[in-house]
Amino acid sequence: MTLTNDLSPGFDEPVDGAQRTFRAVLEALSRPGVPVPLAGIDSAPAPMKPTLAAAALSLLDHETSVYLAPPLAIESVRRYIAFHTGAPIVSEPGEADFVIALADRDMPDVLQLKAGTAEYPDASATLLLGISGFGTGLPVRLSGPGIADTREFSSGDLTDDFWTHARKNHTRFPLGIDVILCGPESVVGLPRSTSIAV
């Protein structure tokens, strides 16, 4: 048996790192569409993005199943997630509590993910979605809880299909999934409660 030491480290400071990341994600879901600055984990294995890795390490553990979408379903990322979180990795996106994906490649269908039940709408999936940036592409107008009036948001990575699905996701409220967009230096929340107009 050979020991390999190619496993990348997690948070520099596990307690502080997890807390700071959670607060950024909490702020993001509380104020949908506003980029909240977040220092990621730079050493995470590619193509995992630093903020995506931070969000995963702060929220996942042995109690949460996770699905890794194709570009991330590689040995280095699987080992990274398995070692740092202990989360069971599942092969069906529809069974996962957390789905980790990249917006520009092989994104799973939002409407196929776990949406909860009428009695337990919290038994639903959270999509952690890596994107390359905000502020480009066609803007959508967001409204709902966390937004004082309306708010414009755009990201060139998010396709028309994504927004169509996200709108359908909102119409089944209180069921649905919550999306956390993980950009290069910030995170943006799109909870199921947010209404989306093109």
């Binding site: 596990p14 307690v15 997890a18 807390q19 959670f22 994600v25 909490l26 879901l29 509380s30 702060s58 929220l59 996942l60 553990d61 109690e63 949460t64 709408p121 919290d122 639903s124 959270t126 809880p145 966390g146 409220f173 209180p174 919550d178 909870p191 199921r192 409660s193």
Partner: peptide, 22 residues
């Protein structure tokens, strides 16, 4: 830390479903 993570996940669901008891 594991307890905090569990509570943090509940808080995020609560924020996403305003008024629902998680």
């Amino acid at each position: 830390e594991q307890t905090k993570r569990m509570i943090r996940r509940a808080i995020l669901k609560a924020v996403a479903i305003p008024g629902y008891q998680v």
